[in-house]
Computed example of a mutant assay.
Amino acid sequence: MELLKVNIEQAGYEERGDVVSNVAFSLEAGQLVGLIGPNGAGKSTTIKAILGLLKRTSGEIVFSGPQGTYAYIPEHPILYEELTLWEHLELAAAAYGLGEQAFRERAGELLAQFRLSHARDQLTTSFSKGMQQKVMLILGFLTKPDVYIVDEPFIGLDPKATRELLDTLNGERKRGAAILMSTHVLDTAERICDSFILLDGGRTVAQGDLEHIRQACGMPEATLFECFHALT
């Protein structure tokens, strides 16, 4: 089942003009797609266009899942200084209309999974960067949407937290969610992604599974890291 269809003809900013052109792909239920490219390639602009945050966008973005819902997990934590971890979760649950019992069960499960149960009543401003990133992950996973859009999720996470994130992503895929993940951690992306969209200069230079990426750069035995450097 197709959960997200993206056809960005042009996208950019009033002051800078178009940054991305002719980026088209779709996400199927259970699929994890890696959005990769060097700095300035257009990954962030593509994500902003999908989220409807750019006025200067032409094309079509369609969320077509059973609920038509998505969660965005940003690269940099966005948290309220005056709220505790639990209050952040309560605010998100209220915004999404999550029932009290369902919220408490899901929140407790995620806090335990990411080893933050002990910090539920602490202000998030006292957290380390890695802990703050975990909070953003928990907020994203709280409502079980159809689609996840995740921007550089591994930054600030230690190996244990990375494993917890990967386990959670795998569980959501089994549930039927689709995931678009922007990342520079190419060795991990090669292991976990079903396919890739490789951007450079605001355009798609290669797309598909690893075999398609290898064919695009003419390197049949190459790693994703080697293909990335050959194509960008």
Rank of each mutant, 00 (worst) to 15 (best):
V6A: 07
L54P: 03
Y96D: 11
Q113K: 15
K55F: 05
G218H: 06
D146F: 00
H229Q: 12
T204A: 09
P74E: 09
L123Q: 08
L110V: 11
L123Y: 11
N170G: 10
L89S: 01
E90V: 05
L4K: 07
I179A: 00
N22H: 14
G202L: 06
I73E: 00
C193H: 04
T84P: 01
A177F: 01
L165Q: 04
D151E: 11
L169D: 02
G97N: 01
G40S: 12
Q132W: 08
S44V: 07
V150G: 02
F196N: 03
Y148K: 12
V185E: 11
E60N: 14
Y80W: 12
Y72M: 00
A24F: 15
R163F: 05
G171F: 11
T46H: 00
R173V: 14
S64M: 14
P77A: 02
E28Y: 15
S58H: 07
I213L: 03
C217I: 12
A222T: 13
F114C: 02
A161S: 13
Q113D: 07
T57Q: 10
I8W: 00
D194I: 13
Q122T: 11
H184D: 10
A107M: 09
K43C: 06
G201W: 08
L166G: 03
G68F: 06
P77I: 00
A119L: 13
N7F: 08
G130W: 09
G171V: 12
I8C: 03
L210N: 04
E60G: 10
D187R: 10
V185G: 01
N22M: 10
R104Y: 15
G52Y: 03
H76W: 12
G97C: 02
L116I: 14
E9Q: 15
A49K: 00
Y70Q: 09
A206C: 02
L4V: 09
L53R: 14
P159Y: 10
E152Q: 08
G34M: 05
G171H: 11
G37D: 04
P159I: 13
S21E: 15
I149A: 06
R120D: 04
L224S: 06
Y96G: 04
S58N: 11
G108F: 13
E60V: 13
L116Q: 09
D151S: 01
K134V: 10
T57I: 07
Y148G: 05
G42W: 08
D121G: 11
H184S: 08
L137W: 03
L35I: 14
P38H: 15
C193S: 09
T45M: 02
M181F: 07
L4A: 03
V185D: 10
T204E: 14
Y148F: 15
S21T: 15
G40I: 04
E105I: 08
P38E: 07
V147D: 02
P153A: 04
I47G: 01
E109Y: 15
I50S: 02
G202S: 13
H184V: 14
L110M: 06
L85R: 02
V185F: 05
A206W: 07
I197T: 08
K134P: 01
E221F: 06
G130F: 06
E15I: 09
E87S: 03
R203M: 08
R115P: 05
M219D: 06
L137R: 03
L98C: 07
